[in-house]
Simulated assay, not measured.
Amino acid sequence: MAAMADPATQAYGMKPKKILKGELKRRGVTYAQLTEKQAAIGVKETDRNLNNKISRGGFTAAFLIQC
Rank of each mutant, 00 (worst) to 15 (best):
M1Y: 10
M1V: 10
A2R: 09
A3C: 09
A3D: 14
M4K: 15
M4R: 14
M4C: 13
M4A: 14
D6F: 02
D6N: 07
D6C: 03
P7V: 04
P7F: 04
A8N: 12
A8G: 11
A8D: 11
Q10A: 09
Q10Y: 05
Q10L: 02
A11S: 09
A11G: 07
Y12S: 05
G13H: 01
M14G: 09
M14Q: 14
M14E: 12
K15S: 08
K15N: 07
P16M: 02
P16G: 03
K17Y: 00
K17R: 06
K17D: 00
K18A: 08
I19K: 13
I19W: 08
L20R: 00
K21P: 00
K21C: 06
K21R: 13
G22R: 00
G22Q: 06
G22K: 04
G22L: 06
E23N: 04
E23Y: 06
L24H: 04
L24P: 01
L24M: 11
L24F: 07
K25D: 09
R26Y: 11
R26L: 12
R27N: 11
G28Q: 04
G28R: 06
G28M: 03
G28E: 04
V29D: 00
V29E: 05
V29G: 02
V29R: 06
V29Q: 02
T30A: 10
T30D: 09
T30G: 09
T30Y: 05
T30C: 13
Y31P: 04
Y31T: 05
A32C: 03
A32H: 08
A32R: 12
A32E: 10
A32K: 10
L34K: 01
L34Y: 02
E36C: 07
E36M: 10
E36F: 09
K37A: 13
Q38L: 12
A39F: 07
A40T: 01
A40I: 07
I41Q: 12
G42A: 04
G42T: 03
K44I: 12
K44F: 01
K44S: 14
E45H: 13
E45A: 12
E45D: 10
D47Q: 12
D47M: 08
D47K: 15
R48I: 03
R48V: 05
R48N: 07
N49E: 11
N49K: 07
L50K: 03
N51W: 15
N51V: 07
N51S: 15
N52T: 14
N52H: 11
N52F: 15
K53D: 02
I54E: 00
S55T: 13
G57Y: 06
G57V: 00
G57F: 03
G57P: 00
G57D: 01
G58S: 13
G58R: 14
F59L: 05
F59S: 03
A61H: 13
A61D: 13
A61W: 13
A61T: 14
A62H: 13
A62N: 13
L64G: 11
L64T: 05
L64W: 08
I65G: 04
Q66P: 02
C67P: 02
